[in-house]
Simulated scan of single mutants.
Amino acid sequence: MRIIKLSPKDIDFPDRSSVSTYFKIKLPQRNPPGQFLLTQSRIAESGIAIGELIIFSYKTEITHIAKSASGRLEYPNTGNKDYPFYFIVDMNTVCSAKGNLADVEVALSSVGIHKNIVRSQGWPSIPNSQAIEKIWNSLKK
């Protein structure tokens, strides 16, 4: 499971309503649909796998969950220095979610996984398991 923290510094997410617009309108209209752009250092080459569970958050609020439909890929526009990589979000799995990162941290702790996800700057990754999938499913609105 990967936690992706959407930033208000990103041009696509200046406020909370823009996050909803992004998932409802922009992401499905990308070519290919679900193309989620990545900066140079966000996810390592082998850092995301097909079918990986994803939690998207904005200012610690969990906004959406989905699954990955690809690993990390190189962006075809070689002139794009800000976003040289991307992965595909499986648009059939995107759904609105509820809660916040502190709730996820508590749920992880209850199954023996002690990981600081609220205060970390990066996009934490937690190995998938039945317990993790149950936590991820509990976030669906």
Rank of each mutant, 00 (worst) to 15 (best):
G112I: 08
N100A: 07
R72D: 10
V118K: 05
A97E: 12
V111I: 15
A97Y: 12
S109H: 10
I117E: 01
Y86I: 05
E74F: 15
V104S: 08
I113W: 02
S110H: 13
Y83A: 01
S96T: 12
V118A: 04
N100Q: 13
K81I: 11
I117G: 02
S110A: 11
V94R: 00
S96A: 14
I113F: 08
F87S: 00
N77M: 10
R119N: 13
G79M: 07
N100D: 15
D82T: 09
V106Q: 11
F85D: 02
S110M: 10
V111T: 08
L101K: 00
L73I: 15
D82L: 09
F85M: 01
A97D: 10
E105I: 09
Y86F: 13
V106E: 10
M91L: 13
T78P: 04
L73V: 14
L101R: 00
L73Y: 10
N77G: 05
L101P: 03
H114E: 09
P76W: 14
Y75L: 11
V94S: 03
N100H: 14
G99A: 10
G99L: 12
K98T: 15
L73S: 12
S96W: 06
V111R: 01
D82W: 02
L101S: 06
K115W: 04
A107N: 06
S110K: 13
A97F: 12
V118S: 03
N100C: 14
Y83S: 00
Y75K: 12
P84M: 01
N77K: 14
G79P: 03
D103V: 04
N116D: 11
S96H: 08
V104Q: 05
E105Q: 15
H114T: 09
D82Y: 04
G99C: 11
V89T: 06
N92G: 13
V106W: 06
F85S: 02
G79H: 06
I117V: 12
T78L: 12
L73W: 11
N77L: 14
K115R: 13
M91V: 12
D82I: 07
M91A: 01
L73P: 13
F85N: 07
G99D: 10
D90F: 02
Y83N: 04
K115Y: 06
V89P: 04
N92A: 13
D90M: 02
G112A: 08
V111Q: 05
I113D: 04
V118F: 04
A97S: 15
N92P: 04
I113E: 09
K81M: 07
V111F: 07
D90W: 01
R119E: 07
A102K: 14
K81S: 09
S109C: 07
V104H: 06
N100P: 08
A107T: 05
P84Q: 01
P84K: 04
A97W: 12
P76N: 14
A102N: 11
E105P: 05
R72W: 10
Y83H: 06
G79E: 09
T93G: 06
